[in-house]
């Protein structure tokens, strides 16, 4: 087309990058999720201040090294997720080689999925052990507070795992991995980091402060 001359059009306003409505909407929704978990933290702290002697007894049953291990796994899943976002921002859905530096979004998301699944499995095992030690949802205020807070968090992790599968599916279904696919990967990462941060809060409150 180099034999065609073109005129440059004068623009009346500078070109701006309009904020992505999906991303901003996700952040506002995560704000509402902050308040959801505020309610759960409030339940936990109120019950604890009402019956400190119950906490002194029951919290001793927690397996802190185990919980710490699965916490590390969850934090690592956030790291792999972020590398998936970098790949999505390069608009690179699949690996171009075996090295992690060449991985695409799909590979990083599968890695995050595996780590997230290990976390949920580890939490399930922890629940099973605690139930065998007679700490259940209905055994005491401690059991209720413990299972409601960690359980709702676990459901959020499960939701994140499903979302990752849907994002991976979109990467496979699209012939050309574009900004729409990248956006869904990015907003799922926002959600995943949020759930991760909430867990760090829960871990400090439940396992560390006891």
């Amino acid at each position: 087309m180099d034999h065609v001359t073109s005129t440059s059009l004068e623009r009346s306003a500078p070109v701006v990058n309009r904020p992505n409505t999906v991303a901003v909407g996700t952040i506002v929704w995560l704000g509402s999720e902050v308040m959801f978990f505020a309610g759960l933290f409030a339940i936990y702290f109120t019950l604890r201040s009402m019956s400190p002697e119950l906490w002194a007894g029951e919290a001793g049953l927690l397996n802190v090294p185990w919980a710490f291990t699965i916490t590390v796994v969850l934090v690592l899943s956030s790291v792999t997720m972020q590398f998936g976002v970098f790949a999505a921002e390069r608009l690179q859905p699949r690996a171009t080689g075996w090295k992690p530096t060449q991985w695409g979004m799909v590979e990083w998301f599968f890695a995050s999925f595996a780590l997230g699944a290990i976390f949920v499995a580890g939490q399930t095992y922890e629940y099973a052990v605690l139930v065998s030690e007679h700490v259940t949802l209905s055994s005491s205020a401690y059991g209720s507070a413990f299972y409601i807070t960690t359980g709702f968090h676990g459901l959020h992790v499960l939701g994140g795992l499903i979302a990752m599968l849907l994002v991976i599916g979109r990467a496979y279904s699209a012939k050309r991995f574009g900004h729409k696919e990248a956006t869904s990967a990015i907003v799922v990462s926002y959600y995943w980091h949020f759930v991760d941060v909430v867990w760090i809060g829960l871990f400090i409150v439940i396992y560390f402060l006891k």
Partner: peptide, 14 residues
């Protein structure tokens, strides 16, 4: 009073 302290505080975080 934990309910209000956490609720108002996290509304600030929000």
């Amino acid at each position: 009073e934990w309910t209000g302290t956490l609720g108002i505080g996290l509304a600030g975080v929000l």
